[in-house]
Simulated scan of single mutants.
Amino acid sequence: MENKVIKTRQSNFELLRIFAMVMIVASHLAVHGVQQVLLDSKYLAYTGGSFVNQLFTCFLPAGGGIGVALFFMITGFFMCRKENSSVKKVVVQAVFYSILTGVLFICSLVLSKFGIWGGV
């Protein structure tokens, strides 16, 4: 008879992961989606909306860094608990995607140089 391993979902970690995703999306909304004015090339002043909206929006960008850190820590926790994970597999995937990204970047430079795609 086979040994069956019963896998149970860990809802608390799944909920925290969803919360991290919401924080990341809210951060992108605050940084890229809300009308903003650059002051002294350091500080952002949000225009439009009430004072409460502006105050709330000022705290959203910090959630992006926290959300990304939470998301990666939870993912790492689940990867460490996997029985069939290996460092070699992760390194091979990282090298493959690094080379692929580099090739795509060089292709975009060449295409923009000849005016085929993008360019100034």
Rank of each mutant, 00 (worst) to 15 (best):
F96H: 02
N3S: 11
L60F: 06
K89M: 07
S86D: 12
I106M: 08
F71N: 04
V22L: 14
I24C: 01
N12L: 10
C107N: 07
G119R: 05
L16W: 08
L44S: 11
K82W: 03
A62P: 03
V92I: 14
M23S: 09
E83C: 02
R81F: 00
F105R: 01
R17F: 13
Y97N: 10
K82I: 03
F77A: 06
K4S: 02
G48C: 04
V22R: 15
L111T: 04
V110L: 06
V52T: 09
Q36G: 03
E2I: 05
Q35I: 04
H28S: 05
F114A: 11
N84P: 03
G102W: 08
F105Q: 07
M73N: 03
S11P: 03
F56G: 10
C80V: 03
I106L: 12
I66A: 08
K89E: 13
A62D: 02
I74Y: 00
K88W: 10
N53E: 14
T75G: 01
V91C: 10
T47M: 04
F13N: 01
C107K: 11
D40L: 10
L39F: 12
S41I: 04
N3M: 09
G49K: 02
V103N: 09
L38G: 04
H32W: 11
F51G: 09
F72Y: 13
I18A: 12
V87M: 14
F51E: 07
C107G: 06
A26H: 07
T57C: 14
P61D: 06
R17W: 02
V68H: 01
L55A: 15
M1S: 10
I24H: 05
T8W: 05
D40H: 14
H32T: 05
G119K: 15
L15P: 01
P61H: 13
F56W: 13
K113S: 14
L55D: 11
G33H: 01
F77W: 02
T75D: 00
S98V: 09
I18E: 15
M1P: 03
L104K: 03
A26Y: 14
V25Q: 13
G118E: 01
S98W: 12
A30N: 03
K89C: 05
G64L: 05
L39K: 02
F71D: 01
V120E: 10
F71C: 01
V120N: 11
C80K: 12
E2R: 13
L15F: 14
F114M: 07
E14V: 13
L16N: 02
Q10V: 13
R9S: 04
M73P: 00
L111P: 02
Q54A: 10
V25N: 01
I66W: 15
T75H: 00
L16D: 08
S11A: 09
G119W: 11
V90A: 08
C58Y: 12
S85D: 08
G102T: 11
G115D: 01
V103I: 15
V68A: 10
V22P: 04
V91I: 15
F59E: 08
F19I: 09
F78A: 00
H32G: 04
S11H: 14
K42C: 11
H28E: 01
E83Y: 02
S108E: 12
C58M: 15
F72T: 05
L55C: 14
K7I: 12
G115Q: 13
L39Y: 07
G102H: 05
L100Y: 14
K89H: 04
